[in-house]
Amino acid sequence: MPIVSPLATIHNAIVTDRRVLAPGVVLLGFDAPDLVAVTRPGSFVMVVPPSGESAATALGVYEADGRRASILFFVVGKRTEELSRISEGEKIGVVGPLGNGFTIGSERDVAIVAGGVGIASVLLPAQAYVRTGARVRLYYGARTTELLVERERFAHEGCEVLVATDDGSLGHAGYVTSLLAQTDRRPDVILACGPTPMLRAVASVASDMHVPAQLSLEETFACGVGGCWGCVVPIVNTSAQAPSFPPAERNGSDVVYARVCKEGSVFWAHELRW
């Protein structure tokens, strides 16, 4: 997948809208036309904390249209808590767009799998595939119904939406990956974003189905721009996928650690050696 980021920069964006989608789930829209212009499906940004007191937070770009981009996040710690308190009219520093993003191909039948906050990274690829005329089905899982935020939005965008909840309060009772495994329709490609255990399960289901899968990985980032090698994941060592590493015979191993923020955050499932 191509590494596209030279157009990334730091945007001083004014927050235009803020919505609480569910308890602890926040959507922030901001004015950043230059970011929108170069954002790709699956791009992420590093959001600079207003206090400057903690590391920047990596978040998927949820929407990107016209002048406005948005981020959608769950409040899970100090940093997201701080971001959740930002209100309309305030300025935020947004570094991006970062990462290689999803590859939008000519597949006619597309399955998108989102787990929890993973939904934040899959609207743009869903829109992109719908625009190509592909049939897009969203498999969307969360702990409980109220956390299945924005599911109507995806239906409105032209996706067929299938849901799963851990507590069985809506749709399939259980993991979204078991819903995918039971599908009556074999897709041409699978795109997925969510917690790592879900992505591993998606990779396994995709392999059983003989369907290629693109996985947007979640890792702890420090820099987010390729400078620190902290967010790595083991991948197959081939020069095409890892141009800056010595080949296997010189490295002594047929796997190398690739940066999720730079060589990813989207990897083909068959590249990964996790």
Binding site: A55, R79, E219, T220, A222, G230, C231, P234, G252
Partner: peptide, 10 residues
């Protein structure tokens, strides 16, 4: 190759 993951903790 570097260390096994995870490599970072905030």
């Amino acid at each position: 190759l570097g260390n096994p993951t995870p490599r970072l903790v905030h």
